[in-house]
């Protein structure tokens, strides 16, 4: 399913002999040609999709508006920024987007009431368009669905953020769990997709192998109106399973065993491990979304697109670390 706002691939070449096969793929097949050139409509369709994605990458983050919306809904917020001072630096230096500015760290560390069970971070990422559109709605849906006895930190609205910025944020606030809602790298079919990345024990230096994510939150994907509640349910179940396992097995110190503390994948299907997401390169429809083409955060997708061996970690985990 495509966004209503997305144009059809093209109507040019509607009598193309491959027309009947378009139902099997969203690939831009059977476009027709003039000489070797693309028909005008197909050329402009592509240009429009790309322009939309470019605009999303460079759109300005309405952090204030999001903060006001959240506060009107009854949730405290604090604003932080990464060390990437502007968009050009943000794109060139993902390492800076993973670090809090000194001022922000101090501000977060000064928040009373910790330790917290959970901190929710709403962040621009690679598509402020996505977060502006439904970041606040997903966050409020999530917060409203959490158990009343959870000690939840003020919502952090983060500018210039990569996924891993949730580590120093969680650390400064002394939170047990960090969930970051972040704009994903825009694709040609969707420029308004949010990702949700969950980290238990967020601390600077966590590997992305330690995170789990739900991708493709957008109209036409996992719908923002229901995403928050869904995420809350997944977080609570995951946390419970973790607590039960901790109680049964004692504290797990080996990082390589951390993943096993997650509930069985079949019960938490949308909450796939990053590795699984990586392996599928955001290519598989998430249940209930009907979307054939979820975009990834800023995951590279597959320059070297294969997992290492049959069951092991993805080979490009290091790239993941760089990119997220």
């Amino acid at each position: 399913m495509k966004d209503a706002s997305n144009p059809p691939v093209t109507t040019e070449g509607a009598d193309h002999p491959l027309k009947r096969l378009r139902e099997f793929t969203e690939a831009r097949i059977g476009l027709g040609r003039y000489g070797a050139g693309l028909p005008t409509a197909a050329s402009l369709d592509f240009a429009e999709a790309h322009a939309r994605a470019r605009d999303a990458v460079h759109s300005s983050f309405e952090a204030q508006v999001i903060a006001v919306t959240l506060e009107e809904a009854g949730y405290e917020t604090i604003a932080v920024e990464s060390r990437a001072q502007d968009r050009a630096t943000y794109l060139r230096r993902p390492d800076l987007g993973r670090k809090l500015s000194d001022r922000s760290r101090e501000r977060a560390a000064a928040i009373p009431g910790g330790p917290f069970d959970l901190v929710v971070v709403v962040a621009d990422g690679l598509s402020a368009t996505a977060v502006n559109a439904h970041g606040a709605a997903v966050a409020t849906g999530l917060l409203a669905a959490l158990p009343g006895d959870w000690n939840v930190a003020p919502v952090v609205v983060a500018t210039g953020a990569r996924v891993a910025l949730s580590d120093p944020i969680g650390e400064a606030l002394d939170a047990k769990i960090a969930l970051i809602l972040i704009g994903e790298r825009p694709g040609l079919s969707a420029a308004n997709s949010l990702g949700a990345y969950l980290t238990f024990g967020p601390r600077t230096g966590r590997s992305d192998a330690d995170r789990n994510c739900v991708s493709n939150i957008r109209p036409g994907g996992l719908r923002p109106e229901i995403a928050g509640k869904k995420l809350a349910g997944l977080i609570v179940r995951a946390a419970e399973a973790r607590t039960v396992r901790h109680a049964a097995e004692g504290r797990c110190r080996r990082p390589d065993r951390r993943r096993r503390l997650w509930p069985a994948a079949d019960r938490l299907r949308p909450f796939q491990s990053l590795q699984t997401v990586w392996r599928r390169r955001f290519s598989e429809s998430l249940p209930g979304t009907g979307a054939a083409r979820p975009a990834g955060d800023d995951l590279p997708g597959g320059l070297f697109p294969q997992p290492r061996g049959k069951s092991a970690r993805p080979p490009f985990e290091a790239v993941l670390r760089q990119h997220i």
Partner: peptide, 21 residues
């Protein structure tokens, strides 16, 4: 790549048209 749009890897490469050009 059909129409330059790789719908799985989510990036843009050269197309059949480009090659013909």
């Amino acid at each position: 790549v059909p129409g330059s749009d790789d719908i799985m890897l989510n990036y843009q490469s050269t197309s059949y048209h480009d090659a013909a050009y």
